[in-house]
Design a binder for these strands. Sequence first.
RNA 1: GGGGCGGUAGCUCAAUGGUAGAGCAUUGCCCUUUUAAGGCAAGGGUUCUGGGUUCGAGUCCCAGCCGCCUCACCA
Length: 510
Amino acid sequence: MSLDESLAQQRREKLEAIRQLGLAAYPHRFSFTHSAAQIAAQFGGESAAALEAARPRVKVAGRLMALRGHGKAGFAHLQQDGARVQLYVRADAVGEAGFALWKLLDLGDLIGADGYLFRTRTGELTVHAERLEFLAKDLLPLPEKWHGLQDVEARYRQRYLDLTVNPPARQVFVRRARMMETLRQAFAARGYIEVETPMMQPLAGGAAARPFVTHHHTLDLPLYLRIAPELYLKRLVIGGLDRVYEINRNFRNEGISTRHNPEFTMLEFYEAYSDYSVLMDWSRELLAETAAAVTGGTTVAYQTHELDFSQLWRLTLREAVREYWPQQAGPAPLPHELGDPASERSAAERYNRIASSAEGSRYRPVAIVPDAAPGVMAAALFEAVAEEELRQPTAIYDFPLAVSPLAKAKDDEPDWVERFEIFAGGMELANGYSELNDPVEQRRRFEMQMHQRERGDTEAQVLDEDYLRAMQYGLPPTAGEGIGMDRFCMLLTNSASIRDVILFPLLRPE
RNA sequence: GGGGCGGUAGCUCAAUGGUAGAGCAUUGCCCUUUUAAGGCAAGGGUUCUGGGUUCGAGUCCCAGCCGCCUCACCA
């Protein structure tokens, strides 16, 4: 028998002994008068003398997280919903049967207690138990009480243990919930309604990514898990739902990293009669408001930096390339050279020469695409030189049309679109644009994508006839944006890995 | 997929190629205001798996599995 088994065996025997006391092994309910948090909030300021005079009665419940026996008495800490309260148990107060139960309790067991509040000599607010109620047995030993559960894989696989013994892990998910709540309130206040669109789609559109494929038997239909809700949300705007948002999962069949999980949560929203500059302005407010609600302020410590969400810095993509251009690669490309295929390409070649050399080791080379459309190399250079430098919340705007098949072109620059991405902490956090609403132009864009697909780009977008039909009924001028909830949560909880903000991240099965 | 690091008791971690240890947890005894309670004693190991080198392998070598980091990929 393994040690694990023998420990479990001991505990099963104790559970049987508890049954022998005439108690239910798995009782149905316990009505507490105060949660552990409420006790601290309500009585935390009361003096020992005041408590002794009043002896406030409480019924509490929770998991035993510490046990300190003292002969015919003992102390315990009960943990309930993230808060703790101390319990003082003495034989003459709980009676013979109660003390027999006390002796059969293990760390991790769930119990209730009935008694009155007092302060111990050391001043800790404590429940003086007069009755104990057994609620459920922990048959397997909890991780160590002081260091908690450190093994990263175990923390993800057995998140319930992580949440039980590592308070910071719990804090992350409490903050995540607060983030969602704040965002929903902000959208409601702006007149948005929350909607749900298909997770299973006959065409995986709205983004450039490899999808997961599944199959519906009755319809004998191949289906894709969505990579984005975009095209459905815009159908809703066509239908007169002028302000819609959705918070839900997207699925992308791609790599796993500290910033990528195959399923991740996206907030995506559209507002009619608006454009990308309106959304950039509102994004700053939305991020600042959420950061303040979650962390208490708009300045957020993230890894080695302090992020200031009260500001949203702005640079065009072309300015960003020039701003972060490595000196060793010679003069930065001029604004008019970005967007000119030949000039871009020669800039990229110049950059690649230093990227592969020793002094440019921080830089990685970009793929030189022959016959690239205008702006393609500019976008690649932006990602290579600027993206990870963008620590403070920054909107990069005006993207190449060639990499933005669903965005509306700028009036004065036909090769560039009204699109922005927000970066913070060196990560892409959001992506928004003025929506392309000309069905003829949209068809042309889809066809450009199909052309790329034929040339081997498996992530080029697919032509969606049904979406084009919808657009022919008239999509008002509209702006839309997506914000990565997991990454935003990483920033707000100072988490280095996306797995720390997803309760059950994808792992290889044991 | 490449590179680096790691996998030892339920948990957190030690251990020059020479008898696998500690703390917590567990078990027994003592202890009625402790709080990482304390004291005395005890039990608990396929050192990730499989080969190899060696008189002898947790330790060295090879292969594999798993994880983390990183690069690539991923707008």
